Amino acid sequence: PPDDERKKAEKAARSGNEEKAREILERLGYSEDEARELAKRLR
């Protein structure tokens, strides 16, 4: 489910793995720019 994926992205971002967070968010349908912004904010 998307919620689980989003949680994974948050966890990745918090542990400093912004790249992985961005990949997950892009898979969820965010654009590259949106995903980058979100990954930064989740950190």
Rank of each mutant, 00 (worst) to 15 (best):
R6W: 15
G29Y: 00
D33M: 10
K8W: 09
R36S: 06
P2S: 12
G29R: 00
A21V: 05
E18R: 02
E32L: 07
D33Y: 12
L38P: 00
D3A: 09
R22W: 05
E32S: 14
E26W: 01
R22G: 01
L25Y: 08
D3N: 11
E10I: 15
S15A: 14
L28F: 04
L42H: 05
E19M: 11
A39P: 00
R36H: 05
E5N: 05
P1V: 13
E19F: 07
E32C: 01
E19W: 08
G29I: 00
A39Y: 07
E5D: 12
E5H: 07
K40L: 09
A12K: 03
R43W: 12
R41V: 10
L38G: 00
G29A: 01
L38V: 05
A9I: 05
E19R: 12
R22I: 13
E23V: 08
P1E: 13
Y30R: 00
L38D: 00
E26Q: 13
K40S: 12
Y30P: 01
A13T: 04
A12N: 03
A21P: 01
A39Q: 01
E26R: 13
R27A: 14
L38Y: 08
K20F: 10
A35L: 03
R36K: 08
S15I: 07
K11T: 13
A21F: 08
Y30E: 01
E37L: 10
R22L: 06
E32H: 12
E10A: 13
A9S: 02
D3I: 10
K40W: 12
R14F: 09
R36A: 08
R41L: 14
D3T: 11
E37G: 04
R14I: 11
E26S: 06
P1D: 15
K8N: 11
L42Y: 14
A35F: 03
S15W: 08
S31W: 02
L25P: 00
S31D: 06
A39I: 15
D33H: 11
S31Q: 05
G29D: 01
E26V: 15
E26G: 06
E5S: 09
K20G: 09
R22S: 03
E10N: 04
K11R: 15
R36T: 06
P1G: 14
R22H: 03
E19H: 08
E26L: 15
K7F: 11
E5I: 06
R6F: 15
L28K: 00
D33S: 14
R43H: 12
L42G: 02
A35P: 00
E10P: 02
G29Q: 00
L42Q: 03
D3M: 11
L25A: 00
A35N: 01
A21I: 07
E37A: 12
K7R: 14
L38Q: 03
E32Y: 11
E34I: 06
K7N: 10
R41N: 11
D33N: 10
R14M: 12
A39H: 01
E34R: 04
A9N: 03
A21S: 04
